[in-house]
Computed example of a mutant assay.
Amino acid sequence: MAWFALDDGFDTHPKVRKAGNAAVGLFVRLGVHATKHLTEGHLDGDIVRAYGTAPTIRKLITVGMLHEPGHGCPRCPQPADGDYLIHDYLDYNKSRAQIEAAREAARKRQQRGRESARRNANPRGIDDVSRSNRSRNDADSDANRLRNDPLFEEEPAGQGDVSRRDTHEGATGVPSPPLPSHTSGADVVEGATGSRSRAETQPEGCAPIDFDGGFHVSDGLRRWAHRDGYATLVDLDHETAQFISHFRANGQRRNNWNDEWQKWIRRAHKWAAERRPASNVIALPGQPLTGTDAKVAGWLALSEQLRQNGDPA
């Protein structure tokens, strides 16, 4: 972008005062037009006559701010016939060559800035990245060719021997995932706590038995639920029925149904505890847990229990 220059004494210059505001306004507009189109002060006559009136044009010529063909100013060149020229334009404004050189220099600076930004964003360089991508693509292609080679055979991951699922022999459509067992539930170690408290080592194959036979909760699992306090808020038989219905309806499978049942019970206990209203009232058989009477009766029952146990309080 180029700028039409006016010095800070332009508004009080004798020529400006003599020309008047209307003519000065035309002069500024013509100067901007010449700078925009890099005419170095030369103006097409049609443009001048379109921008200004005959009196304003004549005032600019009379005071010497605008020249017409045949003018007598020794410092300014002659305009073409029918055209005009701004007086001393190149004394205050850049030439076409200067403006074009400045624009080219700015373009090169911007290009260098963009290249520097790309280098900073990719220190290894674009060529290095391209070579890396080509190497990675070549490696992938080699791996695909090797995988498709009939002489190449992968071993089953995580198994010492090939299972029936890895061979055509014995395969019947989509292989079924393991199902819960009702005959081989693991017991729970007495005295152990938490979700990993299992007694005997799980039988080989974990629990690939169908749900149709019913899921059996072993005595060890029940002892675990009572020992860790889950049975206080959870109906084990009801939750077991819900457990079986859920997994049967969704067709989901697990590698170890005993662990999955324990997780189900812990979650059911958590939800029951969150739904249980907070209260300091002790539940008494046959007595509703509301009102002052229930609260007083609860504290009396606790006091009697402590007295019977020999507590001095």
Rank of each mutant, 00 (worst) to 15 (best):
D293R: 15
T53D: 14
D7I: 09
R248V: 06
N93W: 00
K108Q: 15
V28H: 08
Q98P: 05
Y230E: 02
W261V: 09
G158R: 11
H33K: 14
E274H: 09
L26T: 11
L289S: 11
F247D: 04
D140Y: 13
A139W: 05
H71A: 12
R112E: 08
R107Y: 07
V129C: 06
P77W: 04
P74N: 07
R75N: 06
N250P: 04
V162F: 04
A105E: 05
G191M: 10
R267T: 04
R136Y: 01
Q305S: 15
P175W: 12
P123K: 03
N258D: 10
S176G: 02
I86M: 08
H37C: 11
K295Q: 14
V296F: 15
R58L: 07
N280L: 13
G31C: 00
A225H: 01
D219A: 10
Q305G: 09
R165A: 15
P180T: 00
G70K: 06
D311C: 08
L302V: 09
N120A: 14
F27Y: 15
K295L: 13
R29C: 11
Q308K: 14
R58V: 08
S197V: 02
V189S: 13
A313R: 08
N137I: 05
H269P: 02
G191T: 10
A297T: 12
A105Y: 02
A192W: 09
E115V: 09
Q262E: 05
D237P: 04
A249P: 00
G251M: 00
D293L: 03
C73Y: 05
L236Y: 00
V217E: 07
P180E: 02
K15N: 06
A117R: 15
H182N: 12
D259N: 08
A273L: 09
A301L: 00
H216N: 11
V296K: 15
P288N: 10
E304L: 08
A301T: 09
T193K: 03
G9I: 01
H87D: 10
G191P: 11
L26F: 07
G298F: 12
R145P: 14
N120L: 11
R248I: 03
L146Q: 14
V281Y: 07
L306M: 07
K36F: 03
R164A: 13
E274M: 08
R112G: 02
A186V: 09
I61D: 00
R267W: 10
R103D: 08
D44Q: 14
C76N: 15
P175S: 10
A268H: 12
S218E: 02
K295P: 02
D235F: 00
P74T: 10
D46P: 09
S132T: 05
V48Q: 10
V217D: 07
D311R: 14
G160H: 11
K36R: 15
E169Y: 06
G194E: 00
S163N: 07
N120F: 05
V188T: 12
H67M: 06
